[in-house]
Design a protein around this nucleic acid. Structure first.
Length: 196
DNA sequence: TCCACGATCGGCT
DNA sequence: GCCGATCGTGGAG
């Protein structure tokens, strides 16, 4: 599997967001792997009022201003984390939100991270079909924000090749500003894509 | 300092 | 379809 490098992530954000459909998100911990195939993404860009970096650099979003190839994780709604891939050139503050993955390896660990053993009784199909569910399943928190994605612990690789005709574009979810932009991409006919 | 709100989820009606 | 949980963040004052 080819691990993506800085050059890959530093291309235009919409291209990366589309091409990440079918890629593998990998987390290696204590010799074990968590692997999910990315099936849904959203792009957030420079001059985009819905983007966390829109009002400039802050303590929370500073990692977004790197060149592409870093992880940006933020905390929201008092209880959830969401994970993004920093994209494009240094200084712009662009990123791609990972909205959903299809679990490929480490499903038992993902289920544990999601709390199936704490009475939640999580059905397998709902393990990673939403941005906060994905982050929880992979145990991604603000501690992981800033992780270099060309390193050994968290990285992305080429997965399956998806023809553009199998990728749908739609409006982004859960935002108030720039609701008309169709910068959400998902794998057509895939049951792991988020609902709503 | 203060305080309104959020790139969500799950449970309930 | 609706609503409550829950708290870090950052803009306002």
């Amino acid at each position: 599997m080819v691990k993506f490098d800085y050059e890959y992530y530093s291309r235009p954000t919409l291209s990366v967001a589309k091409e990440l459909i079918g890629a593998y998100f990998v987390r290696k911990r204590r010799g074990k792997y968590l692997v999910g195939m990315i099936v849904e993404t959203e792009a957030y860009r420079y001059n985009d009022p819905a983007c966390h970096a829109y009002r400039g650099m802050t303590e929370r979003n500073k990692v977004m201003f790197h060149h592409g190839g870093f992880l940006y994780v933020y905390f929201t709604y008092g209880m959830h984390y969401c994970a993004n891939i920093v994209t494009y050139k240094e200084g712009f503050g662009e990123a791609v939100l990972i909205r959903a993955v299809q679990p490929l390896e480490g499903i038992g660990t993902m289920a544990k991270n999601r709390g199936v053993n704490s009475g939640k009784h999580t059905p397998v199909l709902t393990l990673t079909n939403g941005p906060a569910k994905f982050a929880e399943a992979f145990n991604l928190t603000t501690k992981d924000s800033g992780t270099d994605l060309t390193g050994a612990s968290i990285f992305l690789t080429h997965g399956i090749s998806v023809p553009p005709s199998n990728i749908a574009a739609a409006t982004r979810i859960g935002i108030r500003a720039a609701v008309e932009k169709r910068w959400r991409y998902y794998l057509k006919d895939n049951e792991w894509v988020s609902k709503r």
